[in-house]
Amino acid sequence: MKEGYKRKQLMKTGLQIVFAIAWFPILWLFLSVTLGKLFAMFIGIAWLEHSLVIGLSLLLIFFAFRYLVLLSERIFGEK
């Protein structure tokens, strides 16, 4: 029984890592295209613009994790 629980926890963690690796570049590119020109107009410092885009991408990944955990709790009734 304990082996199944460990495997389940490993799969949950592994799937979250795969989710983050797969979606981070997609979000980063999307935010670069949509907000990059806006940041360039107002900020003008390239490394700061890229840092903001990366930070926003990480924040969106974090919120996506929170949403998926909340959704799985509603569907499956467990964490």
Rank of each mutant, 00 (worst) to 15 (best):
M1G: 08
K2L: 08
G4Q: 05
K6E: 12
Q9Y: 04
Q9W: 07
Q9E: 13
L10E: 15
T13W: 12
L15K: 15
Q16G: 15
I17K: 12
F19W: 04
F19R: 02
A20Y: 03
A20P: 01
I21Q: 02
I21A: 07
I21R: 01
W23R: 02
W23G: 03
P25Q: 04
L27I: 10
W28D: 01
L29Q: 10
L29Y: 15
F30K: 07
L31C: 04
S32E: 12
S32T: 10
V33R: 15
K37D: 15
L38H: 14
A40S: 10
A40M: 07
F42S: 12
H50W: 09
S51Q: 06
L52Q: 05
L52V: 10
L52G: 06
L52P: 00
V53R: 05
G55V: 05
G55F: 04
L56Q: 02
L56G: 03
S57W: 00
S57A: 12
S57E: 03
L59H: 01
L60K: 04
I61Y: 03
I61V: 14
F65R: 11
Y67Q: 14
Y67W: 15
L68D: 12
V69M: 08
L71V: 11
S72L: 01
R74M: 07
R74N: 06
I75E: 00
G77Q: 00
